[in-house]
């Protein structure tokens, strides 16, 4: 009898531990940047978490059942949209058995809505071009202004679901936009000397950042999205970088650092690890600090190779 009581007590404690954390809105997201924006807009009324870590490739998140468990009681799910999470979200969302966040409900948010989407494919899309995104490039969170669109969108969603705190959400979104605009002016000034300079990312995920700050992109280390480079393709890239005088390769923590370093070294330049997502590298705890690190890393690399700054 004593052992039965002990077992029931343990089970009860487990159930208490499993109870959803207290907040007006429990928000889950596909990306750390979206969780960061959601937290800043939601303030104390929101508890936001991202299923993908900042140092994890958002294309290839393992659809672990623990992710389903993590969103079992979420009030809002913020998808990156543009099919960035299509490889794993179609398993995780239904697996959560949470009717509040299924597509088509108020609790499901496509964060790309309203964003000015770049690189929308024209004509027929096929996988001979690699793992292309047929709705356009989904890495819009590399543009600070795109995150303002996301913040305003989330403020409207949170207000709709939690009208009692609507004024706070609107005020927080406004403050977010103002802080982002002020920060953007600072970041633009840091990169202004390098306008028109070309860099080589590992993957086609830098177009929004480059477009915002006036940098040029010079191909990618991987020959096609999702396809690893062969030695011959690396040779070709190195030769074309030498001819064009391109010196800086940028990559994220989840990409092939060795290939990037090899390309940069042989082209006489540098490879720099840059966080595209919040939490990708140390000191990138929110979207502002992420851009601080991104901009300063790239500015330093360009200064070192161009002699500028």
């Amino acid at each position: 009898m004593k052992s039965l009581i002990r077992s029931l007590s343990v089970l009860g404690l487990c159930l208490l531990w499993a109870a959803p954390a207290f907040a007006d809105l429990n928000v889950a997201t596909s990306l750390t940047d979206l969780a960061s924006v959601a937290q800043l807009v939601g303030g104390g009324h929101v508890k936001a978490q991202s299923l993908c870590r900042g140092y994890e490739d958002p294309h290839f998140v393992p659809a672990k059942p623990s992710l389903m468990k993590a969103i079992q009681h979420a009030d809002v799910y913020v998808s990156s949209g543009l099919e960035l999470d299509i490889g794993w979200l179609p398993l995780v969302l239904p697996g959560s058995r949470n009717p509040k966040i299924q597509p088509g409900t108020k609790g499901f948010v496509d964060a790309s809505e309203g964003v000015n989407v770049l690189e929308k494919p024209r004509g027929t899309v096929n996988r001979a071009e690699g793992d292309v995104h047929p709705l356009g490039n989904p890495h819009y969170y590399g543009d600070p202004k795109a995150l303002e669109v996301v913040a305003d969108h989330l403020a409207r969603v949170f207000s709709d679901l939690d009208p009692a705190n609507a004024a706070d959400y609107a005020a927080n979104a406004k403050a977010f936009d103002a802080k982002m605009d002020a920060s953007l002016a600072k970041w633009e000034a840091m990169l202004a000397p390098y306008k028109g300079t070309a860099i080589v990312p590992y993957h086609k995920n830098f177009i929004y950042f480059a477009d915002r700050f006036g940098l040029k992109l010079f191909g990618t280390v991987e020959p096609k999205p999702g396809i690893p480079p062969s030695p011959r393709q690396i040779n070709d890239l190195v030769e074309s970088m030498k001819k064009a005088g391109v010196k800086v390769v940028v990559y994220q923590p989840y990409y092939n650092a060795e290939a990037c370093r090899q390309v940069a070294k042989r082209a006489g330049g540098v490879a720099v690890e840059v966080p595209l997502e919040v939490g990708g590298l140390p000191h990138t705890d929110d979207v502002f600090s992420k851009f601080d690190v991104m901009v300063s890393s790239i500015a330093d690399a360009l200064a070192g190779t161009t002699g500028g700054k």
Partner: peptide, 12 residues
């Protein structure tokens, strides 16, 4: 019918 129990880990 698959029930995702309230235990803190994924228990189905």
């Amino acid at each position: 019918a698959a029930w995702l129990t309230p235990l803190p880990w994924y228990s189905e």
